[in-house]
Amino acid sequence: MSNRTTNLLVPIISVILGLLVGAVIMLVSGYNPLEGYAALWNGIFGDMYTIGETIRQITPYLLAGLAVAFAFRSGLFNIGVEGQLIVGWFAAAYVGVAVELPKIIHLPLAIIAAAAAGALWGFVPGLLKAKFHVHEVIVTIMMNYIALHVTNALIRTVSGGGDRTESIFASASLRSDFLENLTEFSRLHLGIILALIMVGVMWFILEKTTLGFELKAVGFNKNASQYSGMNVNKNIILAMVISGAFAGLGGAMEALGTFEYVSSKGGFTGIGFDGIAVALLGMNTPLGVIFGATLFGSLKYGALNMPNAAGIPIEIVEIVIAVIIFFVASGYIIRLLLLRASAKKKEAK
């Protein structure tokens, strides 16, 4: 079996194992797994409305996945996507309510504000990693909590003590009548197009530019990159800034498309953490991220149908996702088993 096929098989096997574990848990706790998964399926593909909502759910997952994957390719683990997404969400919503401008200026401005906020939130851990060799995992976790508390305080200030901002002006909205009519008035918005363009952007940066080449080189071997004359510190900071910008755009999707406002949060959205799962499942490639985001976005949205249709708590899908991450992370053992299996086949021949 070639290396390529095993690389493809690991995520697929992990997904199957995850769904199996989910089925076993449903069975043991007295639910019918077939009914459960049927409800999940209908929650994803039931009618045009659910399909529209599913795609809407996939949109931020695409960007969160890109953010994690991009950092991974440069040898960095950005757990801070959650925080970067939250500040992006706030920045976009703030620009959306603060001023009213012609759409052609207002919408890009709000989107850029989100990307800039996310980039800033990624810049801090990048700088600390480059200058002080501080591990980015811990800094980004801390930045997540700082983002949560700071945006909550800002929302309170902006809204004059309330829990949420006003709705954004229509000139900053990503909603489109065409998409809404097409999907029986779901909240599907134009963000999906932006997200898919960003997938292309990531591919272009990584595969077609000197910057991308250097980033990947730094990811493979810092010392060799340094020795061949690359500025490793600059590349680390840039990687975190670009990753943060992707995450910030994910926040813009929620601010300008799905909700059209930002409200204060008691806890995290979870999109950023699921972005880790998306990137891992997609093996940190742009195409893989589309696959991962589609799967996890669909699972997340489809799960909402499970309590009504089958009486099963939506958390079962979270369990499935966690198990999938666990198996993808333990890819070594799956590879080992696959290797043994194919070796045995050869002997039999």
Partner: peptide, 23 residues
């Protein structure tokens, strides 16, 4: 034993714990 990325495995534990207990 499985040589997984320890941070990723930790993230999985966090997701699993919250989901399982709420379930």
């Amino acid at each position: 034993s499985f040589r997984a990325d320890q941070v990723v495995s930790g993230v999985a534990i966090n997701l699993l714990a919250v989901a399982l207990s709420l379930y």
